[in-house]
C-alpha cells in the first residue's frame, strides 16, 4: 500500500498526460512517415519503466480510452485492455532490471508484443470481425485463405506486427532512460530498477 502511494505520486500523475500525449504525437508522426509500425505506446512503456507496473497499466488504459473517446478513433477504446497490459508488462520488466541492458529491453519488447497480440486477437475478432482496417489485414486474409479460423488469423496478424513494434518501442525507452539525468530519475519511485 505504501509502495503504491509512492508509485502514484503527484509527479507520476503529471507524467501520465504527457506520456499519453507522446503516445498520440509519435503515433501520428509514424503515420505521417508511412512506417509499417504503430509506436503508439512509447509513453506508456516509459511510465511503466520509471513508475512501476500499476502506473504503467493505468497510463495504457487511459491512453486508449482517451484516444478513443476523443473521437479520433473510437475503436481504440475497445482495445484498452491491450494498452493496460503493455504498461503493466513494461513495469514488470523494469522491476526485473531488464531496462538496464539494451538487448534485454528488446527481448522484453518482443515478449510484450506477443502478449499484446494474444490479447488483441479476441477483441478484434469480436468487435471488428477479425480485421483492423489497416494494411496488415492482408496477413489475416492469407491465413483465412489457408483455412485457419478467424481468431488464429487475427492472432497471426498481431504476431506479424506487434513484437517488432514493441521491440522498437522498448529500445527507444531504453535509449531515453539512459539519456536522462539521474537527478530527474530520482523523482520517480522506481529509479533504482533502471540504472
Amino acid at each position: 500500500m505504501e509502495r503504491l502511494k509512492r508509485d502514484f505520486s503527484t509527479i507520476s500523475l503529471v507524467m501520465i498526460p504527457v506520456a499519453i500525449a507522446i503516445n498520440i504525437a509519435i503515433g501520428q508522426l509514424v503515420y505521417t512517415l508511412k512506417l509499417p509500425l504503430y509506436l503508439d505506446s512509447i509513453g506508456t512503456i516509459f511510465v511503466g519503466a520509471v513508475a512501476g507496473p500499476w502506473v504503467g497499466a493505468l497510463t495504457g488504459l487511459l491512453s486508449n480510452l482517451i484516444w478513443g473517446l476523443s473521437g479520433l478513433n473510437p475503436a481504440y477504446t475497445a482495445y484498452a485492455p491491450v494498452g493496460m497490459i503493455v504498461g503493466l508488462l513494461a513495469g514488470i520488466f523494469s522491476q526485473l532490471g531488464w531496462f538496464k541492458v539494451w538487448w534485454r529491453a528488446i527481448i522484453a519488447g518482443v515478449i510484450t508484443g506477443l502478449v499484446a497480440a494474444l490479447i488483441s486477437a479476441p477483441i478484434y475478432t469480436y468487435v471488428s470481425g477479425g480485421v483492423t482496417g489497416s494494411g496488415t489485414d492482408v496477413i489475416t486474409a492469407v491465413f483465412r485463405n489457408a483455412g485457419f479460423g478467424i481468431l488464429p488469423s487475427a492472432f497471426a496478424q498481431g504476431v506479424s506486427s506487434d513484437p517488432l513494434d514493441k521491440a522498437i518501442s522498448f529500445f527507444v525507452v531504453w535509449l531515453v532512460v539512459r539519456g536522462l539525468p539521474l537527478r530527474f530519475l530520482d523523482r520517480f519511485s522506481r529509479a533504482e530498477d533502471l540504472r
Binding site: S128, G129, G130, V131, T132, G133, S134, D137, T140, A141, R144, N145, A146, G147, F148, I150
Partner: peptide, 11 residues
C-alpha cells in the same frame, strides 16, 4: 476490410 477479408477468403 471485413467484406474483403472475411467475404472473399472464408474457407
Amino acid at each position: 476490410s471485413l467484406f474483403l477479408v472475411q467475404g472473399l477468403f472464408w474457407p
